[in-house]
Design a protein around this nucleic acid. Structure first.
Lengths: 210, 210
DNA sequence: GACGAATTAGACAAGCCTGTCTAAATTTGT
DNA sequence: ACAAATTTAGACAGGCTTGTCTAATTCGTC
């Protein structure tokens, strides 16, 4: 494992103050000195990691946004699949979990660093998602007043059932992700879908009848 | 400030590993020795704090749940007010912020402690909220298939606009809380409200036209 | 005012961690 | 095969933290 990957893992598990360079060196399979040679000191290493994670996560999010169903065949199924992709590729994957944890844990100590993340991440991804929903609304497939609000509510609904798991740093099973996304998208379409015969089909899935 | 309050504040700000007993003593206005006399060691102090916060937060949540609008005059307004109370009294207040941060930051290191929280907290509060929604549905005011899903989605929608702020440990302004709750409840009622003339009133609020 | 309990300041040993240094070993490029 | 660059193990000083100890001080209560 590379130094940066090992450091991300250790910083997340132990927090910045709780991590020590020897753990990172052991996990990366290099000597302590090599880490100092490459990254100067603990804080510089930390900053390098956050930048690295931010960049990779953003790339992943934009890649996933580009799979948004602009011309859906089956709106509900396509939005569910999109929500699942978003979760699996951007939120539940290794980078997503690590970046989230570091932001939550160390956000207060590095205001500029995470302000940077905020501008490059949420500041650019939310409008991108909102624009896709605006396009669907413009195409007459959804009934949306404010696409920014709808975008945030879409993601909130898709993750509604995963909050407790995220809180404790766990990773939901694929089944849980699919179920949360399914229930979330159904509710989203009950709120914003055009009234059509097939739109309000089916009961919501529950663990019991999944 | 009491030792426990000071410790909660310092542990949240610095993380368990980053906190030291002298900071807590200074913030509490007592000597270091007094902390050792009362709480034994750093880890026992930490556990005491989490239990204290869990208990107070749970009490607050149940108190707020008891204000759920079982016989609403104006369903939308009453649900918005409930969502705002939930946010202000349980999630954005001092105890809520502290407990959330400690769970996120140290959850991995104390599995049993936070399993306890999970059983006493989410394990009991979600069913309680779901029961209230089930009652509204039974009274014919909402069209809900699965009250547990609806309860989670209600809270997710009410907080949809506050996620980024929470992530960085910030506290949203009252205006932001009201706006997020308003937009969230409107969407919730578009999805689950009975179709009646007044239910789909008004555009959603945005910072621009708030 | 007096007595017992609690609190305090400060010193202290032991341990851990960071960041540096050195000399040897290994890898790399040619 | 050889030279340069990189990596390594280990030692090291300096600083910080925990938890204990002691003697003095303050507090609560009668």
């Amino acid at each position: 494992m590379s130094i940066v990957d090992a450091a991300a893992s250790v910083f997340c598990r132990e927090s910045f103050a709780g991590a020590n360079i020897d753990m990172i060196a052991a996990e990366a399979g290099v000597s302590r000195q090599t880490i100092y040679n490459h990254h100067g000191d603990k804080e510089k290493l930390f900053v390098a990691i956050v930048r690295d994670l931010t960049e990779r996560c953003n790339a992943g999010i934009f890649a996933t946004i580009s799979t948004f169903p602009d011309q859906p065949k089956d709106l509900e199924a396509d939005l569910i699949a999109f929500a699942v992709r978003m979760n699996q590729n951007c939120i539940c994957n290794r980078d997503g979990k690590f970046l989230r944890k570091l932001i939550q844990t160390e956000g207060g100590r590095y205001p500029e660093l995470f302000a940077e993340w905020r501008e490059e991440g949420p500041g650019r991804t939310w409008p991108a998602i909102a624009a896709r929903f605006a396009r669907l609304a413009h195409a007459g497939l959804l009934d949306i007043d404010d696409p920014d609000v709808a975008a945030r509510q879409f993601m909130a609904l898709a993750n509604a059932e995963l909050q407790t798991t995220f809180m404790l740093g766990g990773t939901p099973t694929e089944d849980e992700v699919v179920q949360s996304a399914t229930n979330g998208v159904r509710t989203f379409l009950r709120a914003f879908g055009k009234r059509q015969p097939a739109t309000r089909a089916g009961k919501q899935r529950t663990l019991a009848n999944a």
